[in-house]
């Protein structure tokens, strides 16, 4: 049974908070730098990092049972399945070079 009285300390919470604020500032700053298509990559990368930090520390997953890892992982895995399989259709529509695959408007 998960008894998480040994969760993170206040010191860790403050460190997590500081890094989240720093990453927020960073993502705004990066947005104004012209990195071409990498603007999106960096912005999403920072968002994923922030989310991971929140999940691990604020939501105690780092200290939780394997089952919690499994549940959180399952949610993210099926989210990726939804993205990947739906995008697969849209990305590959053009591959046969037929008008059917083109979107019109």
């Amino acid at each position: 049974m998960a008894d998480d009285h040994h969760g993170p300390t206040v010191r860790i919470y403050l460190a997590v908070f500081a890094s989240l604020m720093f990453l927020t500032a960073l993502t705004v700053w990066v947005a104004f730098q012209d990195l071409g298509m990498f603007n999106d990559v960096v912005a999403l990368g920072i968002a994923c990092t922030k989310a991971t930090i929140v999940i691990l520390f604020f939501m105690h997953v780092k200290y939780a049972s394997r089952l919690t890892w499994l549940l959180a992982g399952a949610g993210i895995l099926f989210l990726l399945i939804l993205f990947a399989f739906a995008m697969a259709d849209y990305v590959s529509r053009g591959w046969l070079g037929m008008p059917a695959s083109h979107y019109l408007q």
Partner: peptide
């Protein structure tokens, strides 16, 4: 872009 039916239609509408 490949000039096909869809491209022409798009060029007319947008």
């Amino acid at each position: 872009a490949l000039v096909d039916e869809a491209y022409i239609r798009e060029s007319l509408l947008n």
